[in-house]
Nucleic acid binder design. Structure first.
Lengths: 220, 220
DNA sequence: GTTTTGGTTTTGGCAAGTCAAAATCGGGAT
DNA sequence: ATCCCGATTTTGACTTGCCAAAACCAAAAC
């Protein structure tokens, strides 16, 4: 029953909630993320609160209700499964599938989704390393370190890249820092705000910490 | 730019145009096919005429303009390619893919469509035997006979089933009359309004001519 | 030549989403 | 204690699609 706009708002609140440390998400953040005028976000969120999908404190912010979170996770599941499908089955580039999935996620029936899941052999992460919620709406969460915090000179594997900007993803790809790649952080420079990373092919890339913090790794 | 509602109207006018022998399609037919109140259809068609997608004669009917037909064919292409993809790649049943494709056809980008086309090896017909317009918007049209008109006792191959009703398609499937099957029309009875068809496995099915006319065949 | 009739068009309204701009709030600066 | 500023909320309006029901037309029936 939920219109695709509703699904988008829920998905947005969900992801903003992670950025804002689980607390209330301010309306400004919702409006910005939805690329909508602030008044529009307020109106919509009030409507969502009305139907019990979010909890809204005027002038404070929003957070998902249990019901809203469940729905949001289903949308996220569709989104990530579609992304993986586009990469694995149709051969699209992982840097561009986020945008494509944005539309598709609202048009896919449960039946089709289930078939895609099967064809992909019930995967647990999407092409960016983001976890795919289970069909029951459970989200497995690993605690990962970013390139800005992991131990120096210790081999690690790229597990996740948290940014959907195609340009950035293409850069990550060119630099051999895509999920699955093994790398070593050689050094960090506080003053220069940089991190030097050696890829398995020997090349060293130096990243600013803003970028480095978007690349998450796990012990090898 | 065309909204998905616009695409649906164009697709509807396109298919109604074939049923109504290429002439003007009366508004009632559009409204019925779109499952919409007559006034709604009138308003929408006037808007489409305004933007040059259809030619509209008040109290007469509508037909697609060159521009509108081109767009309609692109929509039909997407629809049929998606249907085939759902059957071939995801393993859905051909009786149910029409409904599924109805949503998907509006959410698929050109890029994804092109990849699907490639994965399917540039097919020329969908699971129901309906021709898939080329990416340039050309629709190959074969002249096919239906079971109500082909020669008796001559082996023919089912080429196309013109009805998207899942129940009917399942019946066709059960009766071994799906596209590709070879059959022979054994007899017709004008008074009983029936056609007796023998499938390649020997079973004989008797159809009313309303149903028989929806099954098109070609010489073997 | 009226009348009937069936399809078509108009009219008035509604719901979803959206924006622009004015009104409002609240917490820090004065 | 007051003012100000940035972030919110309100308000008024617009656009798309849709419906119901009244008005309308044209062609066939009487």
């Amino acid at each position: 029953m939920a219109t695709s706009t509703v699904e988008d708002y829920l998905k947005t609140v969900f992801s903003q909630q992670q950025r804002h440390g689980g607390g209330l998400v301010p309306m400004g953040a919702v409006a910005a993320a939805m690329r909508v005028a602030p008044g529009t976000a307020t109106a919509m969120i009030k409507a969502l609160a009305e139907s019990g999908l979010v909890e809204y404190e005027p002038r404070e912010g929003v957070k998902l209700s249990a019901k809203g979170e469940k729905l949001a996770l289903h949308v996220v599941r569709r989104h990530r499964l579609v992304e993986l499908f586009l990469v694995e089955v149709l051969g699209l580039d992982w840097s561009e599938v986020d945008e494509e999935a944005e539309e598709l996620e609202h048009a896919i029936s449960e039946k089709v989704l289930a078939r895609m899941d099967a064809v992909l052999k019930y995967p647990r992460t999407d092409p960016h390393g983001d976890p795919i919620p289970s069909s029951q709406g459970k989200l497995a969460k690993r605690r990962l370190e970013s390139l800005t915090e992991c131990e120096l000179n210790r081999p690690v594997r790229i597990a996740r890249v948290i940014d959907q900007n195609p340009q950035f993803l293409q850069f990550v790809d060119r630099s051999n820092l895509r999920p699955g790649a093994e790398v070593v952080v050689k050094s960090r420079d506080e003053l220069a705000d940089s991190v030097a990373v050696k890829s398995s092919h020997g090349a060293v890339v130096t990243l600013g910490s803003a970028s480095a913090s978007k690349i998450l790794v796990e012990a090898v």
